[in-house]
Nucleic acid binder design. Structure first.
Length: 816
RNA sequence: GCCGAAGUGGCGGAACGGCAUACGCGGCGGUCUCAAAAACCGCUAGGGGUAAUCCCUGUGUGGGUUCAAGUCCCACCUUCGGCACCA
C-alpha cells in the first residue's frame, strides 16, 4: 500500500497559523447561537508548561470544540494568575524584578499553550498582575469595605515562617498544619489583619441546589463550613454577677454537667480566677500559649487543665460545679467555653477521670446495671438522673430540654459554623495592594475610587530575609490622608491572590473595559460559567471563595446571579511513569514540548485523553503514547491512501454493516464526550478505524457509505485531534473549517441490527450463542435454543427446567 | 476517630443486574528482509485436556439477595483524598 507519512509538525504549524489569522475561535456577543461559557482554572505563571497543564486543558478544549460543533456560541478564554510568592523568590534569588520574571514566564507559557492547538479566545486574555486588572481587584475590596464585608481585626493567625506571611485557614493543610504552597508547618501569630465576612454566607454557601458540582466538592465544602445545631445558654458564676455563655449540641445531657471549662485565652479567666489559684492558672496559660497548634490539636494528647477557683451553676439541676481552664477548649469555636458532660462525651470523660470528677449517667445505655461507666456512652437511650425528663428517650429529650430552657429564658437554639472569616492580608510585595490609608486624625480611610489603582512601586528592594519590600519603601508607605490631607501611612499588606482569581471569570466577558471591572451587558450575556473544570485541590479554597465573591457582589448590587459556575468537573492528576507524583527531584517529569516536537500536539492530546477516566488521573507511559500515535498514523492511512478498485461493486450487506458501525460510533462518541469519557471515546474511534482498515480491502470503498464513514471519522476526531482533522478534512475535499462543521447526527435506521446474539445459558453458564432476528418471542427462542446440540447435552439431565427469557439478550434454562 | 472515592489480566484500563477483561501497552508467533528496525497479520486471564465450537476456576476478603452479581445489600481488609479536641 502506498503510504504517505503523517507528519504532525508540518500540519500543526500550518493550521495554527491559519486559525489565528482567521480569528476562528473568537467568541462574539452578536452570535445568534445559544451562548456557552467554558472555563478552565487559570494557570499560575510558574514558568514552563507542565504535562499537568495539558492534562487539565486538552480535554476541556475537546469538549468545548464538541459544543461548538453542536451549535453553541462557545467562549473558551485563557489568562494568567500572575501574582504570588515565587515571583518574589526569583527576585531575591536571581535579582530579577517580579514583573519582568512574570511577564517573561507568561510569554513563554503563552507560546507553549499555542502549540496545543486549543480554541482559546486569546483576545480575551487577562493577567491579574496588570494594573488595569488589579485596579478592579482593589475596587472590589473597597466595595466590600463600604458594605461591611471587609474588616480589620487582631487575631491569632496562621503564619508561614518560610513565606513570611499570614495565611487563610483554608491555606493551611494536613495533620501537621503546613502551608499549602511551600509545605512548611505554620505557627500562630497575633496580628492585625484584614478579613472578609464569608461567615455571613455560611448558610447560603451550604445550598448547592443551583449548581451541578461533583459530590466530592459539595461534601468537602459542607464539612469545611461545618454547621452544627444546638443550644447556647449561660452558666451563672457563683458569688458573681458574671455569666459564661456556652454552646452545646447535646441539650439532652445538660443534667450530666459536672464541670465547665474555659479556653485558656478566654477573656473572663483573669477575673474569675481565685487568688490562691492564680499562679497555677497563669503558668498553665503560659504553657498553652507556647504549644504549637499541632501539639494542641493532637487528639492523642492528655487532656490537661487547671481549676481556677470559681464555680458555676447548672441551670437545669441547680448543681454547683467547678470551673477549669483547659487547652482542649478552643477560643475560636463557639463561645470558647463548654459544659463538661463526662458521661456522654469522650473528651469530657478523659478530663473528668484525670481530675477525679464525678461521671454521672444521664442517658442509660442498653442493659445498663446502674454501675459507673467504663467509657463514655455516646448512643441513644432513655434519660435518667434528669429530673422530670427521666424516662424520656433522649432524642425527644433534646427538643424537650431545649424547649424548656428557651421558655424559661435560660438559653436559645443556635447554629454554629466551623467556617472562619477569610483572612486576605499577605505580608508580601507581589500582590494587589490593599487600598487603605491610616491617618492619625481620620483613622482607617479607604483610597477613593478615582485614585485607583494603588500601584506597586517598581523600584522595590528585595531583601534576602523575605521581608515585604513595601514595609521599607518610604515613598509608598508615606502618603497623605485622602480625607484631611495630613501625612498618613499606606497599608503595606497585599491581598491574597485568591482574591484575584475570585472574579477573573467576570473579566473575561469584557477585557479592556475601563468603566468598571466588567461591562454589565456583556457580563449578563456570558455569566454564569456553564462549564468549569479544574483540580479538586481548590475545593475549599478558590471554589469556596469565588462562590462567596459572587454572592457578596450580588448583595452589593454589582451582579444579579447567585452562583458563578453552573457545572464543575474535576480532572485527576497525571503521574510520572513510576506511578509517583511528578517532581524534579524524582526525575520523572514529562516535558510536553518534547512530545509535541516529535509525535505532535494531536498525539499528546489524544494520549492524555486515552490514559483512563479524566477524573482519575494516572501514570504517564511513553510506550502508550506511541500506541496512540500509531492509531493516528492508521487514521491517516485510511483517509489518504488510495483504495483498491475492482471489477465487482460493493456487497449490499457490507454497505449496511459499514453504515451500522459508522452510526453506532457517532452515538458512542457523542454519549462519551457528553459524559467526559474521553478514554472510551477514543477506544470507540480505534475500533471504528480498525474496521475501516479491513473494509478498505473490499469493494465497499466504492460505495457512498465509504465516503460517509471517512467524513464521519474525521468529524468525530476534530475535537480530539484538531490539526489532523483539519488536514484530513481538506484532503477529503471538505469546506474549511472542519471545526465549523455540524456535529454528525445518528441515523437511527442505520443502527438497527438485523440479527442479535442470543446468549443461551444452562444453570447460569453460557453454553451457546445464537444469532437470531430481534424481537423473537419466548417459545421461538426456546425452540431454537433446544435445537442446539450443545444445549441438549447440558439440559439432558435437568428434567423440565424453568426458562428465563430476556428478549434479544439471553435465555437461561434452570434446573432444580 | 469521622466523611468521601477506589480495589478487575504482566501494565493503563472496558463492562444499562445478562458473553468479565473492549481499546491500548507489553509479550509470543508469523509476513516482509541477507539481517535488524519499522510496518502489517495472528495469538495472548489462570488451570486441566492429544484436541475441540471441551471442562473447571476466576473482578480485595467473608456472607447475603437473584434464574443470573465486577455491578445490588451487610460485615471486613487495603489504598488514596478530605476533616479532625468544632463542644
Amino acid at each position: 500500500m502506498a503510504r504517505t507519512k503523517y507528519h504532525p509538525p508540518t500540519i500543526e504549524a500550518k493550521w495554527r497559523a491559519r486559525w489565528e489569522a482567521d480569528g476562528l475561535y473568537h467568541a462574539r456577543e452578536d452570535d445568534p447561537r445559544p451562548k456557552f461559557y467554558f472555563l478552565t482554572m487559570l494557570p499560575y505563571t510558574s514558568g514552563d508548561l507542565h504535562i499537568g497543564h495539558w492534562y487539565a486543558m486538552a480535554p476541556s478544549d475537546a469538549r468545548a470544540r464538541y459544543l461548538r460543533m453542536s451549535g453553541y456560541n462557545v467562549m473558551l478564554p485563557m489568562g494568567f494568575d500572575a501574582f504570588g510568592l515565587p515571583a518574589e523568590e526569583a527576585a531575591i534569588k536571581h535579582g530579577i524584578h517580579p514583573y519582568k520574571w512574570t511577564m517573561a514566564n507568561i510569554e513563554r507559557m503563552r507560546n507553549q499553550f499555542k502549540t496545543m492547538g486549543a480554541m482559546w479566545d486569546w483576545p480575551r486574555e487577562a493577567i491579574t498582575c496588570d494594573p488595569a486588572y488589579y485596579k478592579w481587584t482593589q475596587w472590589f475590596f473597597l466595595k466590600f469595605y463600604e458594605h461591611g464585608l471587609a474588616y480589620r481585626a487582631t487575631a491569632p493567625v496562621d503564619w508561614c515562617p518560610h513565606c513570611n506571611t499570614s495565611l487563610a485557614r483554608e491555606q493551611v493543610w494536613g495533620e501537621d498544619r503546613h502551608c499549602e504552597r511551600c509545605g512548611t508547618p505554620v505557627i500562630k501569630k497575633e496580628l492585625e489583619q484584614w478579613f472578609f465576612r464569608i461567615t455571613n454566607y455560611a448558610e447560603e454557601l451550604l445550598d448547592f441546589s443551583k449548581i451541578d458540582w461533583p459530590e466530592r466538592v459539595v461534601t468537602q465544602q459542607t464539612n469545611w463550613i461545618g454547621r452544627s445545631e444546638g443550644l447556647t445558654f449561660d452558666l451563672a458564676v457563683c458569688d458573681s454577677s458574671k455569666k459564661i455563655p456556652v454552646f452545646t449540641t447535646r441539650p439532652d445531657t445538660v443534667f450530666g454537667v459536672t464541670f465547665a471549662v474555659l479556653a485558656p485565652e478566654h477573656p473572663l479567666v483573669a477575673e474569675l480566677t481565685a487568688p490562691e489559684c492564680r499562679s497555677a492558672v497563669e503558668a498553665y496559660q503560659y504553657s498553652a500559649r507556647r504549644l504549637s497548634e499541632i501539639d494542641r490539636l493532637s487528639t492523642q494528647r492528655e487532656r490537661t487543665g487547671v481549676f481556677i477557683g470559681s464555680y458555676v451553676i447548672n441551670p437545669m439541676s441547680g448543681a454547683e460545679v467547678p470551673l477549669y481552664i483547659a487547652d482542649y477548649v478552643l477560643m475560636a469555636y463557639g463561645t470558647g467555653a463548654i459544659m463538661g458532660v463526662p458521661g456522654h462525651d469522650e473528651r469530657d470523660f478523659d478530663f473528668a477521670q484525670r481530675h477525679g470528677l464525678p461521671i454521672p449517667v444521664v442517658i442509660a445505655p442498653p442493659d445498663w446495671d446502674g454501675q459507673p461507666l467504663a467509657s463514655p456512652y455516646l448512643g441513644d437511650g432513655p434519660m435518667v438522673n434528669s429530673g422530670h425528663f427521666n424516662g424520656m428517650p433522649n432524642s425527644e429529650g433534646w427538643q424537650a430540654v431545649a424547649d424548656e430552657m428557651e421558655s424559661k429564658g435560660i438559653g436559645h437554639r443556635d447554629v454554629q459554623y466551623r467556617l472562619h472569616d477569610w483572612l486576605i492580608s499577605r505580608q508580601r510585595y507581589w500582590g494587589a495592594p490593599i487600598p487603605i490609608v491610616y491617618c492619625d486624625h481620620c483613622g482607617t480611610v479607604p483610597v477613593p475610587e478615582d485614585q485607583l489603582p494603588v500601584l506597586l512601586p517598581e523600584d522595590a528592594e528585595f531583601l534576602p530575609t523575605g521581608e515585604s519590600p513595601l514595609k521599607l519603601h518610604a515613598a509608598f508607605l508615606n502618603t497623605t490622608c485622602p480625607k484631611c490631607g495630613a501625612p498618613a501611612k499606606r497599608e503595606t499588606d497585599t491581598m491574597d491572590t485568591f482574591m484575584c482569581s475570585s472574579w477573573y471569570h467576570m473579566r473575561y466577558t469584557s477585557p479592556g473595559y475601563d468603566q468598571g471591572p466588567f461591562d454589565p451587558a456583556r457580563y449578563r450575556f456570558w455569566v454564569p460559567v456553564d462549564q468549569y473544570t479544574g483540580g479538586i485541590e481548590h475545593a475549599t479554597m478558590h471554589l469556596l471563595y469565588t462562590r462567596f465573591f459572587t454572592k457578596a457582589c450580588r448583595d452589593i448590587g454589582i451582579v444579579n446571579n447567585d452562583e458563578p459556575m453552573r457545572r464543575l468537573f474535576n480532572q485527576g492528576i497525571i503521574l510520572g511513569e513510576d506511578n509517583e507524583k511528578m517532581s524534579k527531584s524524582r526525575g520523572n517529569v514529562v516535558n510536553p514540548d518534547d512530545y509535541v516536537a516529535t509525535l505532535g500536539a494531536d498525539t499528546t492530546r489524544a494520549y492524555l485523553m486515552f490514559i483512563g477516566p479524566w477524573d482519575a488521573g494516572g501514570p504517564w507511559n511513553s510506550r502508550g503514547i506511541e500506541g496512540v500515535h500509531r492509531f493516528l498514523q492508521r487514521v491517516w492511512d485510511v483517509v489518504t491512501s488510495p483504495p483498491k478498485t475492482g471489477a465487482h461493486g460493493p456487497e449490499p450487506a457490507d454497505v449496511v454493516a459499514l453504515r451500522r458501525i459508522t452510526h453506532k460510533t457517532i452515538r458512542k462518541v457523542t454519549d462519551d464526550i457528553e459524559a467526559f469519557r474521553f478514554n472510551t471515546l477514543i477506544a470507540a474511534l480505534m475500533e471504528f478505524n480498525n474496521y475501516l482498515l479491513k473494509a478498505k480491502r473490499t469493494a465497499v470503498v466504492q460505495s457512498d457509505a465509504w465516503s460517509e464513514a471517512l467524513r464521519t471519522l474525521v468529524l468525530l476526531l476534530a475535537p480530539i485531534t484538531p490539526n489532523l482533522a483539519e488536514e484530513l478534512w481538506e484532503r477529503l475535499g471538505g469546506q474549511y473549517s472542519v471545526h465549523t462543521q455540524q456535529w454528525p447526527r445518528v441515523d437511527d435506521s442505520a443502527v438497527t441490527d438485523e440479527t442479535v446474539v442470543l446468549i443461551v445459558q444452562v444453570n447460569g453458564k453460557v453454553r451457546e450463542r445464537l444469532s437470531v432476528p430481534p424481537g423473537l418471542d419466548k417459545e421461538a427462542a426456546e425452540a431454537l435454543a433446544r435445537d442446539s446440540a450443545r444445549v441438549q447435552r447440558h439440559i439432558a439431565s435437568l428434567g423440565s427446567p424453568r426458562v428465563i427469557y430476556v428478549p434479544d439478550k439471553l435465555i437461561n434454562f434452570v434446573g432444580e
